[in-house]
Design a protein around this nucleic acid. Structure first.
Lengths: 208, 208
DNA sequence: AAACAATCACCCTTATAGGGTGATAAATAA
DNA sequence: TTATTTATCACCCTATAAGGGTGATTGTTT
């Protein structure tokens, strides 16, 4: 006999909060054990709720959702955190994932999908809404119309790994001066004059 | 009146290939216009198929799937490429996404999900199987038990951006010598003695 | 024929990196 | 409460690396 999945909802908007609680509790096998309007409020008693999964909003009064993630992790190391928010900015998503969130869903996600995602997260995975997956995929795709040649891109990648010119020369079996020459051309094309700026510009334009 | 979604399947195993073709064609609105056993074979005539979506296997004889992606992109810039494979290695997935694949599904994906994913891709998105999403999420999550302090991590991140000591000092409003000192401690903790090695080790252990 | 790509060469100066050694105040942990 | 870690700064040193300038050669692609 399996125990119900214990869920806690942290979301400041009462309507949304109770809405989630209701629709999740309606599904068999899922139980919302508590709801909070902020992390600061939750922090006091959430350890007594023993949640398996925490639904967490990003836009919270006081401690925001991103800041809350590591602190929730510390309070409840075995709970999975599912971000449920309207924000879809690349930076926010990556911050949340890097901070330890197990998944990321947008608020327009249909109820059935949310319940399914909770199950997926609980089973050790990481669900992503289609919008988020889209964004993550896009973040991996390099710019196809790079001004840099293949070789230049390859060398810039090594520069971004912190390698010195001579290290790059050794690794590519070419002369030190050739590496220099490529880097000069890279600087020209990107209109920069330092490694840091080249890396920055290249990343902004997804050249590397 | 909408036109059927035109699909091409490139997959070397005949059983699997025809299996996909059959199950996709059975769905209304989806039409498999051609199938190929390899990219090299497909390259000759695929432009006459005018596919909207290409289902592409990674393990192909001759030109493999990863190599095929940029070449397919060149032949058919507007076609979406959906990787459908058994491989789940992080490197392979990221290579495929970086090369321009629009999505990544594993072969154990149920038929209905594949059809749904084709629709999602066609509508401009990027579906990911749960396994893949899981892996991508994991790849974003930093190691929680880093040997580095917060400040050290922050400085190492800037080193990885190609910044010089003095640039880092300026940006953090601390002395040049302090930056040096931190970097020395980072080297000690990571047992390295160069920027490149520190970056490499840190990335391998997801410290940055 | 012209443009681009990849290769190498030698001029130059300043900044940078990394090793060694040590100190101090504050925060955190044992 | 003591011990350890963290964050801060200082000065010794040398070899190397970075970046600017200028130019040349050999292919490849257009």
């Amino acid at each position: 006999m399996e125990r119900d999945i214990q869920i806690v909802v942290i979301e400041d908007d009462e309507i949304i909060r109770e809405g989630y609680a209701l629709l999740i509790s309606r599904t068999e096998g899922y139980q919302v054990v508590n709801t909070y309007a902020s992390f600061d409020e939750a922090a006091k008693t959430i350890t007594n709720d023993y949640p398996d999964v925490i639904l967490l909003d990003i836009e919270l009064p006081g401690t925001n959702g991103i800041q809350a993630i590591p602190r929730l992790k510390k309070l409840l190391p075995h709970a999975y955190i599912l971000i449920l928010t309207v924000y879809e900015s690349e930076k926010t998503i990556f911050e949340a994932l890097a901070s330890g969130a197990s998944g990321y869903l947008t608020k327009n996600t249909p109820a059935a999908k949310i319940v399914e995602s909770i199950r997926e997260v609980k089973d050790g995975g990481g669900p992503m809404s289609v919008n988020i997956a889209r964004m993550v995929i896009r973040s991996f795709q390099k710019n196809q119309e790079s001004p840099l040649s293949k070789r230049e891109t390859q060398i810039l990648e090594q520069v971004a790994e912190g390698k010195s010119r001579s290290q790059i020369a050794k690794d590519l079996f070419i002369d030190l001066e050739t590496v220099r020459s490529h880097i000069k051309n890279i600087y020209l094309k990107l209109d920069v004059n330092s490694r840091a700026d080249a890396i920055k510009t290249a990343k902004e334009n997804k050249l590397i």
